[in-house]
Amino acid sequence: MYSQGLIGADGRTGETEAFLAAFQARIDAEEKIEPKDAMPEGYRRTLVRQIGQHAHSEIVGMLPEGNWITRAPSLKRKAALLAKVQDEGGHGLYLYSAAETLGVTRDEMTEELLAGKAKYSSIFNYPTLTWADIGTIGWLVDGAAIMNQIPLCRCSFGPYARAMIRICKEESFHQRQGYEIMLTLCRGTEAQKAMAQDALDRWWWPSLMMFGPHDAESSHTEQSMAWKIKRFSNDELRQKFIDATVPQADYLGLKVPDPAMRWDEALNGGKGGYRHGAIDWDEFWRVVKGEGVMNRDRIAARKKAWEDGAWVREAALAHAAKRAARKVAAE
């Protein structure tokens, strides 16, 4: 998720070399940068972009899973899914707060999302078609998010790193919950197992795309690595995810939809790993640029909630102003 968080980030910065060197020395000493510390403008801009896009991903991500809350097939699953989607909203809230420490407001970030200026993870532009998608999202999408986010707990920017510690704990719970849904389906009826395989077939490649373009095509990696906003490259994280996930699919008795996938002793510095087939980057960029099945619907749903809720937010402010005025009058 966070690799995509850097899409559109502008790390250019215009400070003196002495300032940049002093800042870099703090980063290299693994000191946390706090909101009131001096920082290069490019560092601030990159973080606002990345944290904001990460927050948007959490908020937009509530929609595909929310699509199944009203149809969850048991009360236990219904409660668990509600709690999970609520957690995602909570992650959005911490992340917006972390971004706000850099001088941007939640409303400004929301307007950017609704205007299509800020991105969110491409994965949420795919539709959830069956109950098995809920298991698959937990297992694969949250699994990929964890791979991305664990290193962010050590991000150089303090508020982001601290928010990520809590988020990672919850994501890890979601991932296990998703896998448990898959396990239950795979031990169930033929129809349930078919539903599980179908969901894996549809979510596998988009999950791999969550890590962002190949390193050679990833334009922001170098500066973000130096600033320790990013600690591993897209391909390194993708490989870690694949190596962890393929044996999990085997255990479920499901087949990863990649005929070229094979064990390769040479990967991971000779430790071996699963070499994957070609990723369809045309599809990735198409979805990032707005032509996924659900892009328009996702933004339309967020816009509708925002616009339909305007009178509520206005009323809350009006009431608070009235109360304050009455308090002053009474004093």
Partner: peptide, 24 residues
């Protein structure tokens, strides 16, 4: 629970499911 993800503000996107969870 039908409100989840569609509330007027993020705080209510958290509060409404909270009440839903209590009731369920």
């Amino acid at each position: 629970s039908e409100w989840c993800g569609h509330a007027p503000m993020l705080e209510e996107d958290l509060a409404l499911p909270n009440m839903a969870l209590d009731l369920i």
